[in-house]
Design a binder for these strands. Structure first.
Lengths: 269, 269
DNA sequence: GCACTTGTGAAAAGGCTGTGAACGCAGGCG
DNA sequence: CGCCTGCGTTCACAGCCTTTTCACAAGTGC
């Protein structure tokens, strides 16, 4: 499995030598002599970013901070000339993952990038191809699709990834920010409603194919939780009058007619 | 959230200085002058392990490799004297996460340990997900909710956070200002009664689901204290007449009827 | 008894989510 | 080349839930 890195540096000697080794190792390397907007970095799907903050001038710290906060999953490595302990500490605390001093041996740079990106992918995608089952649902990563019986839900890529993430963390409450971070790959902007919109789309498709189950539960002020539950398990207290509801009727399709679906909201839970 | 580290090194000067800073930062640090079997490391539940391989002699590489492969979730940091590029590369490829050269500033060592362990916990489950138990109560941060048996208390986000804070500091008296500061995140305005109101809501929900226990105690003029206590341990002096209350009746739902709940108040000491 | 603190219920304010629809962008197709 | 279609994003708004605020009752300490 190869590593994708980008180098932001004006030191052509260093870059050239590194590029040579990177190619030999089968890595993909892109290079820039000036700052790259974090948004564009997303598209590159990098494992690591090497950067010499010297060329950023006054913007250096803020740029590093921006990159680190927007792309927490990206390994951020500084390679620069002389620096003080205070600078290194500041950088590392800010989100930089490793700080190397030039001149530095390209092989060591490679090894450090490996070490830093190893941590990443470690916990991540590995068991990914295992299908999940939840209620009537079967989620198959190999098809990027979910099924009820043999009927596909016709999920788009994002819809699938959201559903898969939620299902993977079954019965955990996931905060919107975390969800966004893990599905979209970068930090959620304040006021972004994308997660909500996709949850709605998912719920529509789930409801359509598996109307007697509810899967995604809202936790007000926090986020969402995935938990397949047969519909109709409404608490007795909330029922009009009747004594303890007879267990014989488990689901009550009538009460949840097609016209209006009500999603039970869990407070803070 | 504090970090747990262990240092394997014979350089007492370095260890001492580091231990001092670690303590100041609220980290927990254990120290050894010789190799520690990987098995024992597991029990320490470390975030990171600092090690000077010099003291391991010929065993150094194999030991590092063993630790790295047996505890892939542990951040492994080498801090040692002079080394060659080849050694550093070998170590990093072997599973070492960072390699520092002595003499090295303890602050930088701390920052590097932080950086390395940040990567870890990042993708992995947050440390804060450890559930708390108190009386009949189970507080589960992963669900932002508290349970009695399997019944959720239906706490809102703030209610949960307040309860969690109190429970975390069990049997400590917390001042209103401190509580507000930690739950709301900013300083409490003079005359703000929010904390009181939320305590009432919590007490209502606790009372409803776990009527035979009392959890939140008022300290007049100060604040609140969390301490699960079985109900019915009312001081004899306060009882009308009867001698020592027979233990047979632990709770007396009638005397604490729904209309009026009495909270015992502790006076400022 | 007086000054102050805390408990309580309810109203007001504020914020969050569900929802439908418009917008922009890209790829496919005529 | 332009149109169409599918997808992701953004917006506005309604409705509901939560939080804050307020006034008053009850309790505490001097």
């Amino acid at each position: 499995m190869s590593i994708r890195i980008a180098v932001i540096d004006t030191d052509s000697g260093f870059v050239t030598v590194l590029a040579k080794r990177a190619e030999a190792a089968g890595w993909s390397l892109s290079h820039s002599s000036g700052p790259v907007p974090p948004r564009d970095l997303v598209a590159l799907k990098l494992n690591a970013l090497l950067i010499d903050p010297a060329l950023l001038g006054d913007e250096a710290w803020s740029y590093l901070e921006r990159v680190a906060s927007m792309l927490p999953e990206l390994a951020l490595v500084v390679v620069t000339g002389r620096s003080t302990v205070a600078q290194r500490v500041r950088g590392l605390r800010l989100g930089v993952d490793d700080w190397m001093t030039k001149p530095c041996h390209p092989e060591e740079a490679m090894a450090r990038v490996e070490a830093v990106s190893r941590r990443h992918t470690h916990g991540r995608r590995e068991v990914e191809s295992a299908p999940l089952t939840a209620g009537e649902l079967e989620i198959r990563p190999d098809r990027f699709q979910a099924f009820v019986g043999k009927e596909p839900l016709d999920l788009t890529r994002r819809e699938f990834e959201l559903l898969y993430l939620l299902a993977e963390e079954r019965s955990q409450v996931l905060e919107r920010e975390k969800i966004y971070q893990r599905v979209w790959g970068y930090a959620m902007a304040h006021g972004d409603r994308s997660v909500d919109v996709f949850v709605r789309k998912l719920r529509q498709k789930l409801e359509k194919h598996s109307p007697s189950w509810s899967y995604i539960h809202t936790h007000f002020g926090i986020g969402y939780r995935f938990e397949p539950e047969p519909a109709g398990i409404v608490k007795e207290e909330l029922r009009p009058a009747a004594g303890p509801a007879p267990l014989e009727k488990q689901a009550d399709p009538e009460s949840q007619s097609s016209s209006q679906v009500v999603h039970k909201t869990f407070t803070a839970g």
